[in-house]
């Protein structure tokens, strides 16, 4: 009986050894890919940060309206943020490639599905970038316009414009990624409905008299279109 047990154990050990021997090159390749990806990501990050700093990217990004995004990232400046994005993208890419080298079905499928998701991810990122630029531009336009109209709440108005555009951009990006679509829609409905209702109540209850006086003035007085002073 012991002879049989020994034979079975030997066969098992042989099979395990064979499996390990078969898997070992794949593991080795995966390890090499991971290490290579790590080194390449670190080098790319250093190069990108250095190049962007040389191009005065931090100041330009600040001017273009990416200041808010950089603040969210918790990093000191836009060059570091861009370097960090490159670093992690390359590292994740290396890890996914190394999974396919293992020649296992599940990791390979995971890697493929992640690769298929990349275009959506890039599109969402583009939406965020455009949203951030638009938010900065429109917020500054609103601020300057409100100050020139001598509105005391100019800053508040500009902030409202900025966050509105940013929220819409984030919502669009998440929608593009198919993340929480129905919840997002519901949240937006509640949020905007709430804001409009609050504004209507504020005007209707709080400033009812002022509004009626303004309307009366407008209806009684003839339209005044001429600027009293010619500045040119």
């Amino acid at each position: 009986m012991w002879t049989q047990v020994e034979a079975i154990l030997r066969q098992a050990m042989t099979r395990i050894a064979e499996h390990i021997a078969n898997a070992l090159p794949g593991v080795l390749v995966a390890l090499i890919l991971v290490v290579g990806a790590f080194l390449a990501a670190a080098a790319a990050r250093a190069l990108v940060v250095q190049a962007l700093r040389g191009l005065d990217f931090d100041r330009r990004a600040e001017h273009a309206g990416f200041g808010g995004l950089v603040d969210w990232s918790g990093l000191a400046n836009a060059s570091d943020a861009a370097g960090r994005v490159i670093y992690w993208a390359m590292l994740v890419l290396g890890l996914l490639l190394s999974m396919t080298a293992l020649n296992a079905t599940l990791p390979s499928q995971l890697a493929m599905s992640v690769f298929q998701y990349v275009p959506d991810l890039l599109a969402a990122l583009m939406i965020l970038v455009v949203g951030a630029v638009a938010a900065q531009f429109l917020s500054r336009s609103a601020l300057i316009g409100a100050v020139n109209m001598q509105l005391r709440a100019a800053r508040l108005f500009a902030m409202a414009v900025k966050w509105l555009v940013l929220l819409v951009a984030v919502a669009m990006a998440l929608d593009h990624l198919h993340i929480g679509r129905s919840i997002l829609l519901l949240a937006f409905g509640i949020l905007f409905g709430g804001v409009v209702l609050a504004a209507a109540l504020a005007v209707g209850l709080g400033a009812r008299d002022a509004v009626s006086r303004a309307l009366e003035r407008q209806m009684q007085e003839p339209e005044r279109r001429d600027e009293p002073v010619n500045h040119v």
Binding site: I144, G145, N148, R225, H231
Partner: peptide, 11 residues
């Protein structure tokens, strides 16, 4: 001719 722009636009 009535002014067609506010001061900010004119500037």
């Amino acid at each position: 001719r009535a002014a067609q722009a506010d001061l900010g636009t004119t500037i």
